[in-house]
Structures are given as structure tokens and as C-alpha cells.
Amino acid sequence: MSVVLFWFFSIVAVASAAAVFIVNSMARASYALALSFIAVGAIIVQLELDYIGVITILMMVMEMAIMAVFMVMYMGMNPALMPMDMRHNKHRSAIIAVFVFVLLAAGALLIPWPERMGVPAANVTASLGESLMGSKMLVMLVISPVLFATIIASLVLANPRGRYDRRGDNLDRRGADGRSEPEDPIRGGLGR
């Protein structure tokens, strides 16, 4: 049974990943990508990594929903559903991709993999939590500031014009009379 499920999820994962770049509308592409992630998450659950697999599925389904919102924002409602060709440099990209696949496949098949060392813990999820909060806490300590820096960086990039643009680095720039708000071509904040 597990073999059948594995083949089913594998075929779905690869076929829908390929469909992402074959279908000719972005909305369909994002649904195909979500399907591919769900299939990969299911394979990961089969590998007894329940927590990681379920998190992958949950995260990616949400991400694809957000992606659809962004697509509509950038392209309007209709283009996201309209067929179009979005590729350039097709042949060279295909050659590089095939070469990389052959290289990776050769590595997977030719490397003499070592024997399995150890067995999974009785409760894999609990053991992950214990290692994250114990001996591997450095991972958590690194990921947290990276994610925080990502929030700040993406806000800085996406924010069109903030108070520091209007009032200077120390927020002390004032208008011509020294008291009022500085002149600014793009007004912002409350009462804009």
C-alpha cells in the first residue's frame, strides 16, 4: 500500500511541478505548484517526518493563496487567467536543466550510500522539539533573527515612502517656518 501511495504522490509531485511551467496562465500555475507541494509533503509524511510534512503542506497552501492575491494585484484580474507565453531563452534553459538532472541522478545512483545509522525516535515530532530547544538551539537562534530581518527588509522595500523620507533621518526636518510639516510632494500618514 505504501509503495502504491509513494508512486502516486511522486508522479503527482513531478507532473504538477512540470505543469507549473507548461500551463499558460499564472493562476493555473500557482494551483499546480500547490498540488506539487502537497504531494511532496505527503511523501515526507511517509518518511515518518510527520511534523515537517504537515508544516510543508500547510505553509505552501497558504503561500499559494497569497501568491494568487499578489498576481491579481500586479496583473489585474483578467491577465492572471488569460493564456500567454511567459518564457524566454527556452532551449538553453532546457539544456541546462536536463544536464543538472543527469548529474544529480548519476550522483543518486552511483554514490555508494552508507548503511542506515540508528532508528527514528518513538515520537519524531517530540524529539525534533527537544533537539530544537536543547542541543540544536543555535538553529532556532539563527532562524529567528533571519526571519525578523526578512520582515524588516521586505517592509523597507515594499514601503513607498515613510516618515524618514519626509522628515530626515532624525525626524527633525520641519517646514519653511520651522514649525509646520515639511513640504513633501507625496503626503503621507494621518490626514493625507
Binding site: 511541478a17 511551467f21 518564457r87 538553453r92 534553459s93 541546462i96 538532472f101 544529480l104
Partner: peptide
Amino acid sequence: AALFAIGLYGALS
């Protein structure tokens, strides 16, 4: 590997 290669094709093309 197949997933990686498909993704690489997409990212490049």
C-alpha cells in the same frame, strides 16, 4: 532531482 531540474528550468526560462 527531477523536481530540482524542473524548478531550475522554470527559474531560468
